[in-house]
Nucleic acid binder design. Sequence first.
DNA 1: ACAAAAGTGTTCAGGTTACACCCATGA
DNA 2: TCATGGGTGTAACCTGAACACTTTTGT
Lengths: 239, 239
Amino acid sequence: MDKEFFLDRPTITAYKHNFRTLLAVDSIIFGFDNEELKLLIIKRDYEPELGSWSLMGGFMLEEETLEEAANRVLYNLTGLHDVYMEQIQVFSKPDRDPVERTVSVPFYSLINIEEHDKELLKHHSASWFPLKKVPKLIFDHNDIVNAAIKQLRYKTSIQPIGFELLPEKFTMRQLQKLYEAILDIELDKRNFSKKIRQLDILVKLDEKDMSSSKKGSFLYMFDKRKYKEKVADGFIFKL
Amino acid sequence: MDKEFFLDRPTITAYKHNFRTLLAVDSIIFGFDNEELKLLIIKRDYEPELGSWSLMGGFMLEEETLEEAANRVLYNLTGLHDVYMEQIQVFSKPDRDPVERTVSVPFYSLINIEEHDKELLKHHSASWFPLKKVPKLIFDHNDIVNAAIKQLRYKTSIQPIGFELLPEKFTMRQLQKLYEAILDIELDKRNFSKKIRQLDILVKLDEKDMSSSKKGSFLYMFDKRKYKEKVADGFIFKL
DNA sequence: ACAAAAGTGTTCAGGTTACACCCATGA
DNA sequence: TCATGGGTGTAACCTGAACACTTTTGT
């Protein structure tokens, strides 16, 4: 029994003798260019690993939550607020950051690839990479990206997210391409549009987008109110 | 532009000036007694909140990962190793712990309610509570428990977990009751056993359990190899 | 012989999949 | 007039849901 009692000590020790760690948020930012999914990463202009590709990240401040920190980091890079964001598994190997132990809480976000501040991106030497061409990133950032992709696919296959990656008005075909890009599969256009229309979260507009074909294709908007109702009802959608 | 550059500072500052936080793991331990789902909590024997009900927890040590810390905490309370464990959302409100800022990474585990070290439980003044009768816990621990229940239900509804909560040999009826307890719904025994048998992850034994009826009911075991294969294939199961 | 739980099969409805042709238009 | 992408319906199949009776055996 003594063994357990010994191991137990740290959990009942007064707070002050315990280890305190740096806590970072890392931002996995996905965008869509109507063809494929892309990831936004930066070229570090500070040590360690100056000049290497990296996720955008930042340390959690004393007075903010992790969610606030993640929003701050995303805002710093893109100028965007109120973006879809989801936390994934924490990365906590003691030696993952060579400078000092840093635990990373990653958040992935979905943004419209057209709607961000390009000056800020330039300032951070940030670039978009197709998912299949993401270079070697610092530390364990490639693992983090892979975990985020996995989580995004999983979520997308059971809940209608992904609208955040499109412009406000979009065609059925764009939406289908988005799902195909996220899930990395091909879908039948008849079945896809039937399914999506059944969800009753889109509004069909009278306008057409004439850029993709001679005939033009109808534009849709996404009915935020209905969408939120459904998600709140714990609604599950299977593609 | 200056605003962004100012906000940006913390993310590019050298490590040393940044805030370091206490990082805790909290353990949400679920057990099943053949009737209902229960939660294991402890009566704190240290300040703050001495005497209050609380999740078992502990601070992450300098040389361990969060997963190791979670295993250590669980081991300290139950004497168990190699238990199913899953991380849920991090809780990081700056004032959630009144003594000092502590970020909590909660892990829930599923254990067989018969197979743990009862001496250790007594030592920690720990008790099992039915989910619907969990008392007020310290800090935001009730929120953490609710998040864990939600996650457990979600997981259970799409993947065959939950076997961890049963003894090695169990009856179809016990398994059904477990699912009913986790999902808080009633299931049809014909459809349930058909579905489970289709999954092809159980082995039917020749033995019967005679304790529950005159006729006796067949015992099953869970085929770990097949189960692991299925889960690795990203297999989704909908009850 | 009866009470108590175990065990099993069929039918029906709804959803998912596979599949092919016509439409509108600009060039 | 033709080439390009847009738009739609139907039949076969599969899965999930609802539902009731027989079996075993201890008392």
